[in-house]
């Protein structure tokens, strides 16, 4: 086997980040099941303490519907964190291996940084969204998560993936 046809591993810290992300995803999934009631109770109490944020009017029929919707989104955020963290951990391992092997020295380093930061950061946006829902409401929480996490980190991953695909295409054409 020549060096040219073997995968080169990315730096150890990249693999560590990916593995920790997968561990967080597993813990997140397990916690959602184990602490389902406690989490729902905490979110509900936090929302009841902030009626203005959620548009609670004091009428049980109306308020319960609003609280139910917020709790569904709160749960969805945790579930999406679990799913995305599992997936992005693997995406980091696969794509940074490609970048380390085929990306070249300088571009490879930049790509590995973008893919690792983007892949590890993006799923945390769902955790942030869930944490913000009781305090800031569904939409404001989503807007904060979108601009502070999803767009910058997701954007980094998208840019890096198309860049890497372009580099591999160029390499194929040169052969």
């Amino acid at each position: 086997m020549t060096a040219d046809d073997a995968w080169r591993l990315p730096p150890w810290w990249v693999l560590l980040v990916a593995v920790l992300l997968i561990v967080c995803a597993e813990l997140g999934g397990a916690s959602m099941v184990r602490f389902k009631l406690e989490l729902a109770r905490w979110a509900r109490d936090a929302m009841l303490a902030r009626p203005a944020v959620h548009g609670l009017v004091g009428v049980r029929d109306v308020d319960e519907r609003i609280l139910d919707e917020a709790l569904v989104k709160f749960d969805a955020g945790l579930r999406l964190f679990h799913l995305h963290a599992e997936g992005m951990g693997l995406v980091i391992i696969a794509t940074t291996s490609v970048a380390a092997t085929l990306g070249g020295r300088r571009a490879g380093r930049a790509l590995i940084a973008l893919l690792t930061a983007g892949g590890a950061g993006y799923p945390l946006g769902y955790l942030l969204w869930s944490a913000l829902i009781p305090y800031r409401g569904i939409e404001e929480g989503k807007a904060i998560a979108e601009w502070s996490v999803w767009i910058p980190f997701g954007g980094a991953t998208i840019v890096a993936l198309w860049w890497l695909a372009g580099l591999v295409t160029l390499r194929m054409l040169r052969r």
Partner: peptide, 28 residues
């Protein structure tokens, strides 16, 4: 581990890039 041929690697990367971009497009 050995590396598969470049066209196979390219298709895998394009799929990941397409998947990410579709997710972003759905949201934005």
């Amino acid at each position: 581990m050995k590396r598969p041929p470049l066209p196979v690697v390219l298709v895998a990367l394009l799929l990941l890039a397409l998947g990410e971009t579709a997710g972003a497009a759905m949201s934005q």
